[in-house]
Design a protein around this nucleic acid. Structure first.
Lengths: 348, 348
DNA sequence: GTGAAAGCGCTAACAA
DNA sequence: TTGTTAGCGCTTTCAC
């Protein structure tokens, strides 16, 4: 024998009508109350909230989206969740978004333009209010559809002319310069750089910033000491091998990302070289694991928290205040040096 | 001057009516066609698909959900995305789900029951068709609301009596036994275990499985060699310290998870002990990073891919075939030994 | 086989 | 201030 059969239509969750009936108001008043409209009197508002509580009611987001056109859903597309750079980014993005009442849709492009296209399509189907494309790849050219549908979008290191698109620029220069200076102050003169693949825009930027830092610090700049790797552990190991085969191997290596540095660590370990006694190593990214390597890795931190905050902010502004002509369209995220145990003065 | 103004209502994306008009059929026929109803004649079906293609139309998922009650949204709640155990799980879950036309909602409970409750509430609001609660914590008791709302749910190592709830059981025993046997075959007699916190159900299971394996292999079982740690790097370091201070330290250590093992690796490195020459170390989980430690870690793999597959399958069955009385309610995921370089024969 | 029409639960325009 | 009502885009009876 169901209690309050009159109000709680058996089985089904309460809807806005149920609440209205209990509070003895119209459904419009319930809607206004929930959405914080200032037009509702305290008296009715109180009655409504009480009914809501009593029924444990919550609005149907799909119905809401259908009529309002806004889903409070934000997409985030990364290259691959298992790439250690991304979990922290997603985590931060999620917690910020949830704090603002948004939900997030995560997907991976696997570095493949066709897959990216599908991800975009899915975001469109789910009516995402905005999409953060954090692939750092070159695949961003596929984003036409998103832009064409007028969805706010934010990219990392890639500019789109569309007014709905924002960009997050990364200032690698500061961190890389700090790293080179750190090495110079330690007494290193021969510093190498294991670069990322030149297909990646960001890899080239990092490499150029390194060269500039070497010059700025007045260190010895040799072409042989800059080697293109591929941002993988194996690439780092191979890069180390090539450097060691040089007539005059460097005493310190800066790597374009942490995985490369970890490869160097492993190759050095295998070859019997001690880090940091015989060789100093610096990574870039500061993935969670950098702290756990042997020895703990000195690295250039690219704050995932800041990146997430910028991405969210870009999207939120575009979504909630699209008319505003002076929206911030460019964001800058900086880098900084984190000194741990993989760097030391070179041997005499 | 807009082209085809008659069919493409300016600006707005095409809806089911637009398609119906172009194909010269009713909207019901369009709906049936899209949903693969067998009642549509080939002739009309062809016309409809052509119109869909021409308009680049896709259905509004929110409208669909509103009327059908099914969202094709699956939730996955983990303890923390940045915990290295989870990215691969989420990745697998996502790619399987996407393959079946589902989208996933990811959230983190941070090991906190109150947060878990909020996550659950959000999943409910978004009308998730099912939720995988992969927290492995003890917080699962908070799941009443989910169950009460009749949402399919799948838990790891935790049983709920509700018919909508499934459980994934983990067979640690196989992997742990294989690890102990591996050590025994290498010649180890003194094998220690660095356990997880006893607040975790799974930690206790792992510990018991270890004891059983020691007995089964006829190795020396000493109480002092089983120490409760906390599944962190620091805990592993501390555990190593306690083991080394023993009158007769073990020659091999099995750890309840990989982070603990990584802590042991670091502590051993600091103390000058060589792994695996002076000490063999085995982890559990096989997080992505286990492959990159120094030396690469021998570990007991808990397949995240299998876990994800089981979780998805449980949810899909419950969501798509709820009536079926003989649904699989329990799934088993096994473990296996992955031998890398952190184990070797003990020194004479 | 196909179409007309009734909602799904909500927001927002319009009335009162 | 509050209520009435018209859809949002779709699925699903129910007729034909």
């Amino acid at each position: 024998m169901p209690r309050k059969a009159s109000l709680r239509k058996a089985g089904k969750p309460p809807d806005i009508r149920t609440v209205a009936a209990l509070a003895k108001v119209s459904i419009a008043t319930v809607s206004r109350t929930i959405n914080g409209s200032p037009l509702v009197s305290d008296r009715l508002s109180k009655r409504v909230w009480q009914a809501i509580k009593q029924l444990n009611y919550f609005p149907n987001t799909h119905a809401r989206t259908l009529v309002s056109g806004r889903s409070r859903l934000l997409g985030i597309i990364v290259e691959n969740i298992t790439n250690p750079f991304f979990p922290e980014l997603i985590q931060s993005f999620e917690s910020i978004a949830v704090g603002y009442g948004y939900e997030i849709l995560v997907s991976s492009s696997y570095g493949d333009p066709a897959t990216l296209t599908k991800c975009v399509r899915r975001m469109l189907e789910r009516k995402a209010d905005g999409v953060a494309v954090m692939t750092f790849g070159g695949e961003e050219t596929v984003l036409d559809e998103l832009v064409h549908h007028g969805v706010p979008i934010v990219l990392a290191e890639f500019k789109l002319t569309d007014p709905k698109a924002s960009t997050i620029l990364l200032d690698y220069s500061t961190g890389i310069h700090a790293a080179v200076r750190h090495l110079a102050e330690l007494g290193h003169r021969h510093v190498a750089f294991l670069a990322g693949p030149h297909t990646l825009h960001s890899a080239i930027t990092r490499e150029n910033d390194f060269r500039a830092a070497i010059v700025a610090e007045g260190l010895s700049a040799q072409k042989k000491w800059v080697i293109e790797c591929d941002h993988t552990l194996k690439g780092g190991m191979a890069g180390f091998g090539r450097l060691q085969s040089l007539a005059a191997p460097p005493t310190a290596i800066v790597c374009s990302n942490d995985m490369t540095a970890i490869g160097v660590l492993r190759a050095a370990y295998k070859s019997g070289l001690r880090v940091p006694e015989n060789l100093s190593v610096i990574g870039l990214d500061d993935i969670d694991f950098a702290e756990f390597t042997l020895p703990p890795l000195t690295t250039i931190r690219l704050s995932r928290v800041e990146l997430a905050r910028a991405a969210f902010e870009a999207l939120r502004q575009q979504a909630e205040d699209p008319g505003n002509p002076k929206l911030q369209r460019e964001f800058l995220v900086s880098t900084s040096l984190v000194v741990r145990d993989s760097t030391a003065a070179p041997q005499a």
